[in-house]
Amino acid sequence: MRFQGSSTYVATDDLMLAVNAAVTLERPLLVKGEPGTGKTKLAEEVASALGMPLLEWHVKSTTKAQQGLYEYDAVSRLRDSQLGDQRVKDISNYIVKGTLWQAFSYDKPVVLLIDEVDKADIEFPNDLLRELDRMEFFVYETRELVKAKHRPIVFITSNNEKELPDAFLRRCFFHYIRFPDKETMEKIVEVHYPGIKQTLLREALRTFFEVREVPGLKKKPSTSELLDWLKLLLAEDIPPDALRSQDNKKIIPPLHGALLKNEQDVHLFEKLVFMTRQSRN
């Protein structure tokens, strides 16, 4: 059972090693990296490559650790008690299972994705220490201990918005997805758009990396933006030389809206391109 990338996902050697070590040693793998470098996608790809179901838990700023375990639906119970429903006598009727519980109770190993763990409250990771370490938790309402039948393969992604506590980090493996270099990028594009015209690809990649080099951009375009942009280029059937155009009137690459996502960046980019062109003339 080894992960080797897939037909739709290019994994570098170190990433494969990280995934396989995490699978073998049954530790959660914390994945960081620039937005759009395929952190979330990784879990999906590993799940499909290893033939396991994928459970996703998307963390928001309001998410509590408890919600991943279970929630006690007090309101329904209150309502039922007023209606004289018999179910009200058994508290377990009002325990709603969270994603973690579902993952623990599967009959075969699953892949569990805890997406964007840094979005939640600072205490969030601390509240999951025991759950991730021992893969068990206690349900106070029913006095029952829930233990994982099989330790799930846990992927945790982070965008670095908050620092994660040391105790939490110590229990995880860590991998930082670097922004792919030109070669890897070509492979990634090939996987997504097989048979894309070589010249177009070369020109597009050149432009793309040039745009990334522009200092002071608020949001550098990432892999997912490149893929979107290529899709547009293909759909519009833009000829490769349009990208190479040194014409002063067309200083901006076509359909750049897919690459640069805010006005200031576009503005800055225009200004810089214009300046270099000027100095060249």
């Binding site: 170190d14 090693l17 793998l29 914390l30 994660l164 980090l169 493996f173 860590f174």
Partner: peptide, 10 residues
């Protein structure tokens, strides 16, 4: 790679 992923978390 293995030592980096196990020992370095940032």
């Amino acid at each position: 790679y293995l030592s980096r992923m196990t020992l370095v978390k940032d």
